[in-house]
């Protein structure tokens, strides 16, 4: 009995002491690193103000926000804006357009860098390979404003070079930017133009890590180029392709605002109006802040779900996820 009591008492004393000791050690380490904390403090303030305060600011989706009232002072209206959003035709149109344009991009743009990388890998002349790569990378560095301006110029029905070629061949000029069908074609082609070259980097890196002996063995067995590509190259980079595809799936609700906004015009609004352009037009230009904040919050949450689930899938496949 007596013995037991002392141990309990002792442990009572020891436990806080151990805690205190650990706390002091931690504090000591933090003091030692004081300059590091001092250094990152301004940047942490930046993240708090410009990343976390807007997250708090999304509560205006549940309010009738007016600048004069401020975020706190605006009237709370519950799900009013969400109900209006989900019962409006606009929402289903922009949601469908966003998804559709992404689906077209996955079908038509996604395979292009893979094909280019495989073909580039077969080039033996280093100078030729380097030149082709340099040219294909260029559009990645150019702003969409410039790329879009160029596209509109060359597709112009009156003076654009593409229509001049059509006319020379005896065909009627096509109003590319004002037809729903051709607009989508232009959108997809412009995506390929801007991203395909740059996209080859990841696949080229994957291809160079393939063991060269596999090809030598295949050649001895009499495999031709097509068989080498389909039986060795493609299976070897299957993992990379899967990862890139899954990551791409995580962005199904994102269509670059600038690309659409540059190419868009009133005639093709029915196919080109997407979530981001709608947010800009109705939210900022139309000043319906709370209503569009509701749309933004919806998009953000779907995006979060998409990216966490794709990351989960990537990790289940045994690859390095984003986290």
């Amino acid at each position: 009995m007596f013995l037991k009591q002392t141990t309990v008492e002792e442990s009572r004393k020891v436990l806080p002491k151990a805690k205190e000791k650990r706390a002091r050690k931690t504090l000591g380490r933090m003091y030692k690193d004081r300059y590091l904390y001092l250094m990152m403090f301004p940047v942490l303030v930046f993240f708090f103000i410009f990343k976390y305060i807007p997250m708090y600011g999304t509560i205006i989706a549940f309010k009738d926000f007016r600048f004069v009232d401020g975020i706190m002072g605006s009237e709370f209206v519950g799900l009013k804006h969400f109900i209006r959003l989900f019962s409006s035709e606009d929402f289903y149109r922009i949601f469908a357009n966003t998804l559709l344009l992404n689906v077209y991009n996955v079908i038509f743009s996604f395979p292009v860098p893979i094909i280019l990388a495989i073909l580039l890998n077969e080039v033996r002349n280093r100078w030729f390979k380097k030149s082709i790569q340099s040219i294909l990378y260029i559009p990645h560095f150019i702003s969409w404003v410039v790329l879009g301006g160029i596209i509109i110029n060359i597709l112009s029905p009156s003076s654009g070079v593409i229509n001049q070629i059509l006319k020379a061949c005896g065909a009627e000029p096509i109003y590319f930017m004002r037809s729903s069908f051709w607009w989508i074609v232009v959108f997809v082609c412009s995506t390929i133009w801007q991203t395909a070259g740059w996209g080859t980097i990841v696949y080229l890196a994957a291809i160079t890590s393939i063991d060269a002996e596999q090809y030598d063995a295949a050649v001895i067995d009499g495999a031709n180029k097509w068989q080498q590509i389909t039986k060795i190259t493609l299976p070897s980079i299957r993992g990379t392709i899967a990862i890139m595809l899954i990551l791409r799936m995580g962005q199904m609700l994102d269509v670059g605002f600038e690309q659409i906004y540059m190419l868009q015009n009133d005639a093709v609004l029915n196919v080109s109006d997407v979530i981001s352009t709608y947010e800009y037009r109705v939210g900022l230009e139309g000043m319906q802040y709370s209503y569009t904040a509701a749309l933004g919050l919806f998009k953000g949450l779907i995006g979060l779900i998409l990216i966490t689930s794709t990351n989960y899938i990537v990790r289940r496949l045994g690859e390095n996820g984003l986290w």
């Binding site: 990343k51 807007p54 997250m55 708090y56 600011g57 926000f65 600048f67 919050l297």
Partner: peptide, 24 residues
Amino acid sequence: ITALIVFTMLFNGGLIPSFVLVKN
């Protein structure tokens, strides 16, 4: 801190709240 910063990559307030912040 790293986790809190990386989280801002996955989810953000979006266009309107950021605009309201800059204006305020």
